[in-house]
Design a protein around this nucleic acid. Sequence first.
DNA 1: GACATCTGTTTAAGCGCTTCGACACTTCGA
DNA 2: TCGAAGTGTCGAAGCGCTTAAACAGATGTC
Lengths: 341, 341
Amino acid sequence: MVTIADVARHAGVSSSTVSYVLSGKRAISEETKRRVESSVRELGYHPNAGARALAARRSHIIALMVPLRTDVYVPVMMEIAVSVTMAARRHGYDVLLITNDEGPDGVRRIGASGLADGVILMDIELEDERIPVLQSQGTQAALIGLPDDPGGLSCVDHDFAAAGALCADHLADLGHREIAFIGYGSGVYTRHAGYAERTLSGFGQRAAQRGLRYVHRPCDGTYESTAGTLARILADRPETTGFVVQNEGAIGPLLTLLRTSGRTVPEDASVIALCQAQLAEQFAPRLTSVTGSAQDLGRVAVEQIMRRIAAAGRGERPQDEQVLLTPVLTVRDSTGPVSAS
Amino acid sequence: MVTIADVARHAGVSSSTVSYVLSGKRAISEETKRRVESSVRELGYHPNAGARALAARRSHIIALMVPLRTDVYVPVMMEIAVSVTMAARRHGYDVLLITNDEGPDGVRRIGASGLADGVILMDIELEDERIPVLQSQGTQAALIGLPDDPGGLSCVDHDFAAAGALCADHLADLGHREIAFIGYGSGVYTRHAGYAERTLSGFGQRAAQRGLRYVHRPCDGTYESTAGTLARILADRPETTGFVVQNEGAIGPLLTLLRTSGRTVPEDASVIALCQAQLAEQFAPRLTSVTGSAQDLGRVAVEQIMRRIAAAGRGERPQDEQVLLTPVLTVRDSTGPVSAS
DNA sequence: GACATCTGTTTAAGCGCTTCGACACTTCGA
DNA sequence: TCGAAGTGTCGAAGCGCTTAAACAGATGTC
């Protein structure tokens, strides 16, 4: 194993000089810097992570706690995980993957052991048990998702209320008057997952402003549950012409069922999905969708936590930031003006 | 921050005694052990990860290198990542997430810095550039996927050849004689991804044994490409009654297109998918599928690497293991006997 | 009763790095 | 010309842990 002492000997300097070249924390002459850098390259030196963490009291690792649930669309989680990892690397950080089932103890473990300099939490509940732990330990954190009380924390999330409103506006603009909002399974609402509630209320408020009538129906996203949900909608509100779907799993079944029931999309029914562009393009017809960037979510969370770690390192109180990312409406082939019948 | 010295003082012993209680590497009296353990609990002590890694030359971290590609079904990757993380935790290990875009240098970095005690690699190509790095550094590794030459490495993968054969057998048993095999996009084959080639050849061999005629068509998994693929199949081989689909993205479009072309599943055409059970159940009709457990893949890889790390720690040469997991055929509603027409 | 053996504990070295303070040398301003 | 300030480098302490070696005391052996 190549150590900093090997590099120092090879370059004919002291090991502290090598350290300063690598960290840039002190001025070093061009000449010395060049010699050290070429020794580093020649010997293939990589600083020992443990020693560095111990001496600098900074591990250059952030932990990412991912949910185990499968009622959240999995590819989005993966996209976030990957974008977090890549953003972190750009700051010289690595990412430790923690699963949600470790719960508050997991957060405690990571903080107390100094394994990670900060934690990014996903699948935030409105009253999340992990948050008090964070605060009591002084562990730096960024949340992907908005808790009830974000005091003393940095958060980033999609602006779900705006996404809901965008759906209402688009359907209203096209002349629809009776809308069905097909949400997540009812478990998501009883758990008070913020994103589901905020989408719905954003949609509901704008719908009211625009004079739309709507029903909200939870839906598990299986074929059976979608069939049941749709049957009930069509029985209760046969005049329904607009569908907003938030549960990705329900999209395929819904399109199939609408076709089966003799409704053509978009002539007889408009469907707008709250999902990733990639997914929206996979259906026939390609779906009009409202999308937020999962990548940005990960990137912003990393930037927030980097700022917090840096501030804490300078002995300052980290700035709490709440960022909501504006969603985008992409009109494709599944929405159209309500037909004159 | 609570250190081992704090615990030692609190329990009235030396810090090495605390260390030995925690690691179990020396005999400690029941009485002392109890006192130390209660001090640990009372003070909320977690050993400092950096110090531990430095002193013991073991980080208790394994790195998991995940692909960025999206042509592999993403939820499967996530499931593997999660099962790796949970299996690692059971061994007192944490998981560091690395993206494939770091390539061989990433492997070098992790190994040389002692950040991780071992690496799990996914998305293995038949001649993978990362493998020579592993070998030259002596970094312990387990591969999820089979390289061309697995000498000196532990690997685990689905038995894709058996999966392909299972598909051929099932369709042959039902009396089908003309089969279309809808594979991954052609990029996957030119990249020589082992899983795609092995599935195809396992299918092909068994098909020949059972007297089946078949065509193999690569397919991107978009709606358009599936439409093109199917049109060509039906034009070239109008007698085709059996479909084997490996690309998850193509499943939905294929079902829709078959329906559109007036073919009922399973009466006129049987469809068998190589995909996760969860996905297979989402379609209508629910798909007969051949599935391997993604969870087992992750679990086995972790167990392999743990054995390797342990062996290397004892100064022994780690055992190379190659494990193929047997896939399972689940008959659902999308396959049936060929209809007498 | 002297010696070896076993059990349980402590002492102390050292893992590879960062960083504080010291130092030598140069440059500047008065 | 001298002290002050700035620049570039080094020496050494110390981060919190593990572990080899030493040691103290109990137990067994002849």
